[in-house]
Simulated assay, not measured.
Amino acid sequence: KLKSYAERNKHHSRGFDGETEQDKVPDISDGKDLEKEATDREWVRDAFAVLTDEERYIVNSFLLAGYRGEEIAENLGIGASTLRSKYRRALMKMRKKLDP
């Protein structure tokens, strides 16, 4: 399932306006290196652990469930610009956890 999401995301960028290359999430493993996949899953799990429940919801909804930013903002009852800020902060928190 994750491979299909990754493949779809390669072809259809659903990024926010102003999103830079650095803001984008790296490609998911192709399934050929099971040890790398297990390590990647552990890293992602650890990175998600540093997020609040709301941040996890935003990142999950945007990256995995495929919702658009406007839909997520509406579900949370916040503005689109607030959502973009929270999304970027959540990605920065995850990146900080993943980068040594």
Results as ranks from 00 to 15, higher is better:
Leu2Arg: 10
Tyr5Cys: 08
Tyr5Leu: 14
Tyr5Pro: 02
Glu7Gln: 09
Glu7Phe: 12
Asn9Ser: 13
Lys10Cys: 01
Lys10Ile: 08
His11Ala: 06
His12Tyr: 15
Ser13Trp: 09
Ser13Glu: 11
Phe16Val: 04
Gly18Leu: 06
Glu19Met: 12
Glu19Val: 07
Glu19Gln: 11
Val25Ile: 12
Val25Gln: 04
Ile28Pro: 02
Ile28Ala: 12
Asp30Met: 05
Asp30Arg: 08
Asp33His: 11
Glu35Leu: 11
Lys36Ser: 08
Lys36Val: 14
Ala38Met: 09
Thr39Phe: 15
Glu42Cys: 09
Glu42Leu: 14
Arg45Asn: 10
Phe48Glu: 04
Ala49Thr: 03
Val50Asn: 07
Asp53Tyr: 10
Asp53Asn: 07
Asp53Pro: 02
Glu54Ala: 01
Glu54Phe: 01
Ile58Met: 02
Ser61Asn: 02
Ser61Lys: 06
Leu64Arg: 11
Ala65Gly: 09
Gly66Tyr: 06
Gly66Asn: 08
Glu70Gly: 05
Ile72Thr: 02
Ala73Lys: 01
Glu74Trp: 00
Leu76Ile: 01
Gly79Thr: 03
Ala80Ser: 13
Arg84His: 06
Arg84Glu: 07
Arg89Gln: 07
Ala90Gly: 00
Leu91Lys: 11
Leu91Asp: 03
Met92His: 06
Met92Lys: 09
Met94Cys: 02
Asp99Ser: 13
Pro100Arg: 03
